[in-house]
Design a protein around this nucleic acid. Sequence first.
DNA 1: CTATGTGAATTTATTCACAGCA
DNA 2: TGCTGTGAATAAATTCACATAG
Lengths: 207, 207
Amino acid sequence: MRYHRIPDETIRRLPVYLRGLLSSAEQGHERISSKDLAEFLGVNSWQVRKDFSYFGGFGTRGVGYEIDKLAQQIKKILNLDNVKKAALVGVGNLGSAVLAYPGFKMFGLEIAAAFDISPKKVGKKINNVKIEDASKLQTLRRREIKLAIISVPRDAAQKTADSLIKAGVKGILNFSPCYISVPKKVKVITIDIAMDLARLPYYIPAG
Amino acid sequence: MRYHRIPDETIRRLPVYLRGLLSSAEQGHERISSKDLAEFLGVNSWQVRKDFSYFGGFGTRGVGYEIDKLAQQIKKILNLDNVKKAALVGVGNLGSAVLAYPGFKMFGLEIAAAFDISPKKVGKKINNVKIEDASKLQTLRRREIKLAIISVPRDAAQKTADSLIKAGVKGILNFSPCYISVPKKVKVITIDIAMDLARLPYYIPAG
DNA sequence: CTATGTGAATTTATTCACAGCA
DNA sequence: TGCTGTGAATAAATTCACATAG
């Protein structure tokens, strides 16, 4: 193992690898080669090996990778063994869908709190998570929740982010279609569904 | 204007610029400088200018960009003036939220069809779109729908994609947490919500 | 004097090719 | 012999610096 600054693109791919490894384990495999893992995920085998090499290389030459061990390592690198709980703000259509989304569990992630401003929604439960009033956002600090998902209307996104950061949140997954300005120490990943759909036509030949 | 191979990253940013321009127009502006646009979107001004320069540069030196004109140009480049209709397959929690999502309109996109296999859902209407039986997927060809959104369970994603491609679909926005294998001519963009949330902890210092 | 447009320099990421270990 | 791990080569994207047009 040697020190390297880890490319951001490698970090982006780690959850992809993790997903592949966990799927492979589900199917009863214990070992996997970079080639098989790559094919399963639609990437190149040398990319896989290069990415793992930044962390020291986890495989056995001539054999491949031990799935469980590698998955554990990736979880550790991604800090998924420490940070697990996330809060969701904005329980509209999209927010409700995210609350009910079953895919977080495989990464050890859990939506542990949900907030909304509508009195009609506050108090209800979705997927066993009780919806709290948005004024209670500051409780996140003592609950040690450092991740949040924003699914409020665009105009409320920046203010929501400000409150979340004041409550100690360090990472934000933003579903609102706008840029959110945050201090350097806070990481924001924005998912804009419409924007992703909007760039598909570029790849479609006219006619 | 000169010929250049356009970087994929530039294409990825074009909808971001478009969103910014449309917002700016909403606020009553007619012109905008690369600096102002960049600040609004959280990018650098030289990045904006460089990106536009691949298409020939649309601005006026000393003045800036005419918002309407530039927005039209970007729409044209992205092929958003030709391709507008999309189909959605899988009307579960996430699919319903996507159907009701108001953000597509600003890009001129429209979800014009929705499909599901559940008899309970078929026939219902969400957001004025009638849910059809999934066996009717092949009608997409004569309806000239070339874009599709997949929000079915993971195990059904590949088969759904195969059917869509058989029906003439050329671009797929995939919400299922898995790799989808497609012919080269078909473009797939995968959004994996859990994966995006899963890489946030990496950026959060322990403790 | 202002703000664009763009070659050139730099940084970052991907791909290759093969050495090294089981 | 098979598959990993990694320097080196290549490719791509970003950043810079400034000439250029209004």
